[in-house]
Design a protein around this nucleic acid. Structure first.
Lengths: 334, 334
DNA sequence: CATTTTTCTGAAATCGTTTACAATGCTTTC
DNA sequence: GAAAGCATTGTAAACGATTTCAGAAAAATG
């Protein structure tokens, strides 16, 4: 592999000059600059990024730590992150934690060891809780799940207003005439808790009963959603509407409804989070809160790159709104 | 950040010894080893991977270059790759090419610049064609799309038998009584071509006509699939069955059928590639060739790590079978 | 007990860059 | 015409690890 020394020799200059040319530093004569560029060209020289990273103590790599890339929410985000990073000459390390705090801790450390420029992190609940005390050692943007933030915080935050979104989704069901609304919430997730709050708020405001058995906290898996739905269907007074707080749950409920030959929305209405690609393919189409995944990914990356160049920026918090898309699955019962 | 020198001082040894201990090299007294480990512990030392990579000329990072992580096929593969890599202490660079050869070339170079240990690559058609002449400079495993391979090749290949899979899927439609079968194939993809071949073979063997207008090569996008399907539906002699060669097409066709109020399989049967999570949620459930994505990802990573430790291994080619899962969308018309 | 072999350890070179610092020459200024 | 300033370049020291080489100590051999 050709190195900077070869280029220097060929151009008849020192390595320092080559480095200056490549780094677009001032104080190089145009003539020399041209000669160096030509040598670079002729030798097809490409700088070794590892050496650069070591010496300059910075790199053009960022980390993206999420629970599971197969969750469409994270899939879309990661795509947006990668795109935005690419456009600014950054590349992306992908890490799946499976909501396992140990795996997450490992990756958080690994990112430091790899000397990444910064990290976009969707923390597990445990990490979110301890976040303030865990000096990560690199610029960080937290997405999807809230972490404490104060004057001395050096991280940014991008969230959607989960409580509000759940509130609106629930209200939508109420307005469409549903009386007995159950909800499925992610067991180990922060968002689950917040969405639960919005759900409760809407029900209370409308003076509706909230039977304990209608509120289920289960692991964020399709199978868990399916099982929980089955149980709900078999209650002696089953709900007439169901709110799901992620697309895996929605899929599970759909499966359960099929198995029980329940028709949506006649027997049970359905409204959920995340506008997964298939929500308009099924019959009926599913009412959802669409999270602005592209924008989350893009903004997160922009905030991060911004913070990388100015690490001491004050903490910023961006709250985005989910978008309610009403479809057949929650059509009015009147 | 604490470095190896700090550890060495604390343990009262040289940095060389510390390095030996951490690298599990022989020739270190147990007593010394213990002392070093303790110092490591006490200082909470973690080796700088960038420095290690520079000096040792190897790293524990691999690259994964695919067209689009949002394609469920690649989503699943990338998850499997990341998992397998993780279990062997490797981490993964994720790159989306969007089937753009330029973007791909950029990433292929970038991976070298980053000094990755190896790359798993789903090449664009252009790259697949020129593959032999393009000395990548690192161990490579090619997945999903075929590239030439010969005695001196230093890359491995993991494919599914596309022709056979398409042949079986087509035959399945024929056996279920469909007479006028159209097919949607990926325009710029190798797999599209191969699947087309299997499609044709099945039709020929059954002495069925193959009208030109029934064979469509379109870009691998949902919208393109939808549009193509619309056109097919409006032919004066429309097909009674449709074969789609990826899940985006399948989704597009489904949408087109809904818009045209065609019922599946009564008006038109549907069978496609890739068992996307939603294929069992729609009504009717979709008949598919399920590609063994987990196994592809896992095997690719294993082959790669294997080749990283022994770069001169002969080229290996693994062909996996797609699995036909018959569902309602292609139910017999009898 | 002398010699050879083997085990253990450290000094210093190295990986390929960037960058602090010094050195050079050329203008400008008075 | 000397002093000062600025633009331009090179020398050499980092960055933080691994690894070669050689030397010291210990063990094995005759």
């Amino acid at each position: 592999m050709t190195k900077i020394k070869d280029v220097a020799e060929r151009a008849g200059v020192s390595t320092a000059t080559v480095s200056r040319v490549l780094g677009n530093k001032p104080y190089v004569r145009d003539e020399v600059r041209a000669r160096v560029m030509q040598a670079v060209e002729e030798l097809n020289y490409r700088p070794n990024l590892v050496a650069r990273s070591l010496r300059a103590q910075r790199s053009n790599t960022i980390g993206l730590i999420v629970a599971d890339i197969r969750n469409p929410f994270f899939t879309d985000i990661s795509r947006a992150v990668e795109d935005t990073a690419y456009s600014q000459d950054f590349s992306v390390f992908l890490c799946n934690t499976d909501e396992d705090p140990e795996k997450e801790a490992l990756y958080i450390d690994l990112m430091r060891d790899e000397n990444v420029a910064g990290v976009i992190l969707a923390p597990t609940r445990k990490t979110a809780k301890n976040f303030t005390k865990m000096r990560l050692g690199y610029p960080t943007v937290v997405i999807d799940r809230s972490v404490p933030i104060n004057d001395s915080s050096k991280h940014d935050l991008i969230l959607i207003d989960n409580q509000d979104a759940a509130y609106r989704l629930t209200t939508h069901l109420i307005e469409n005439g549903y009386k007995n609304i159950a909800g499925l919430f992610g067991k180990d997730s922060y968002t689950g808790k917040e969405r639960h709050r919005g759900f409760i708020k809407a029900l209370k405001e409308n003076k509706m009963a909230i039977p304990d058995e209608y509120v289920r906290f289960v692991p964020s898996k399709k199978a868990a959603g399916c099982a929980a739905a089955q149980e709900l269907f078999e209650l002696k007074s089953p709900p007439d509407a169901l709110l799901t707080t992620n697309s895996l749950f929605t899929a599970g409920v759909l499966e359960a409804a099929q198995e029980s030959s329940l028709s949506i929305p006649a027997d049970i209405a359905l409204a959920g989070f995340d506008d997964a690609p298939w929500t308009t393919l099924v019959e009926p189409k599913i009412t959802v809160i669409a999270q602005p995944t592209m924008e989350i990914g893009r903004s997160a990356t922009e905030l991060l790159l911004n913070r990388i160049s100015e690490p001491d920026l004050l903490a910023r918090k961006i709250t985005l709104q989910g978008k309610l898309i009403a479809r057949q699955s929650s059509a009015s019962q009147v």
